[in-house]
Design a protein around this nucleic acid. Structure first.
Lengths: 232, 232
DNA sequence: AAGTACGAAATCGTATACGAAATACTATGG
DNA sequence: CCATAGTATTTCGTATACGATTTCGTACTT
């Protein structure tokens, strides 16, 4: 676990070169090697990966469909991100789909899963001490991944992954890590686990999970309206 | 209005040939010219459209990302659909995103919009008399389109459109049009409008909109469990 | 000095061509 | 008559090449 790029659909067979290119570029974006605004030149990437431009082009357009890059006709592709509005859209959408995913998964989560999730959450608490945001973020995904492991609707799960990837591309930007928020987050995780343990009804769980994500957005918004330092 | 293919982002500039191919194939799928299971041969499509295979390939993969076609390495692409499980996933997801979209849009819907939506709904009622399922379905999209016109989150709107397109590809299959359901649907539309008019709170509206879609799924499920005639 | 026009470079978009994989077919042996 | 192996055909996957479009830099004009 604690992998960064998520939703590569596990099978790391890397069958076609276009898939190889897709995975490679996606990883560079998600890991932060290509930061938002970075200019993706097809020929250059093709050379780097040792393939021709056609599969690279295909990979880029696939990433465009996921919202990770922006493609402009006859101009080129750039790593998308940065835009606060886009951040809001993504977080709001994530709030909804994560809420649904949690509620749908809840009845299928067993005691063993709860224990695993709780262990991850405790580890997150430790990260707060040593201030390790990168690891914290990774563990946060792990935590929710445990909950979503049994999600009966793969479509919804896919939407969650897409949101995560989009956020990941923003890693070290002005977003993320509003000071006090991370601490609350850990507490909310624990509360969520208790709700699931006690077989709370779906609506309650959904609402809690949704609020969990929405609170992070609210914290960000509160911060920016107070000190409007955000990107240009 | 009452167009079938939705979400082609309006701009019918048809800039690149790949976009032209994308729009053309998508339209054929959504309109039902290419039915589920139909084998999409790149070279053939390329010839039909008067372009080479490269842009066609790109178009197909884009459609794959939207779930409209299934692509198998070194084998080819087929129009996806049919699978009852997939139908369930799609409807469940739609239920969630439509619910959210409606709730988010509600505060921005004015009296004029309500009136338009109501007019569409009355037209739908007429379709029930003459039994015109095709027009009914189109109007149904129009109805919800009016509601979503002011949706403040384009991501969510996009998810709704994707769901619609996926359903459209199933047009004349075993799904759709469970007898009594269409009638209830019209009534639910009216109820929804009244909720919006009376400025009901977001949760109430979201729940109603979600149930509206979920009820259609339930009707389908009830039908198939009673008479399991669905595709092998 | 600022703005505009023109030319050069960079980059994308697509056609064509060829190699690779999978499928369909046929002939042969049981 | 059925199973199987081997070949032929289809179709995809990607490299290469070239035309189209945009962008950048430079020179010229006002």
């Amino acid at each position: 676990m604690t992998d960064t790029a998520v939703g590569v659909s596990a099978g790391s067979k890397l069958g076609s070169k276009s898939e190889q290119a897709y995975a490679a570029v996606k990883a560079r974006i998600v890991e932060g090697a290509y930061t938002p605004g970075y200019r993706l030149v097809l020929a250059k990437i093709a050379e780097d990966l040792g393939v021709s431009v056609v599969p690279v082009r295909e990979a880029i357009r696939r990433l465009e469909a996921e919202g990770l890059v922006k493609f402009e006709r006859n101009v080129g592709a750039t790593v998308s991100g940065i835009d606060p509005t886009e951040y809001l859209y993504t977080m709001q959408t994530l709030s909804i789909v994560e809420g649904a995913a949690t509620a749908l998964s809840a009845p299928l989560i067993g005691a063993a899963d709860i224990a695993r999730a709780r262990a991850v959450n405790e580890e997150m608490r430790e990260c707060l001490e040593h201030f390790d945001p990168v690891r914290f973020t990774a563990l946060n995904q792990d935590f929710h991944s445990v909950l979503f492991e049994h999600c009966p609707n793969p479509h919804i799960l896919d939407l969650v992954h897409r949101g995560w990837n989009r956020l990941a591309s923003l890693r070290s930007s002005t977003f993320r890590f509003v000071p006090g928020r991370a601490h609350d987050s850990v507490d909310e995780h624990e509360a969520l686990l208790q709700l699931i343990e006690s077989n709370a009804d779906a609506d309650t769980i959904e609402h809690a999970a949704r609020r969990h994500r929405a609170a992070t957005l609210d914290a960000y918004l509160a911060q920016t309206t107070t000190a409007p330092t955000a990107a240009s």
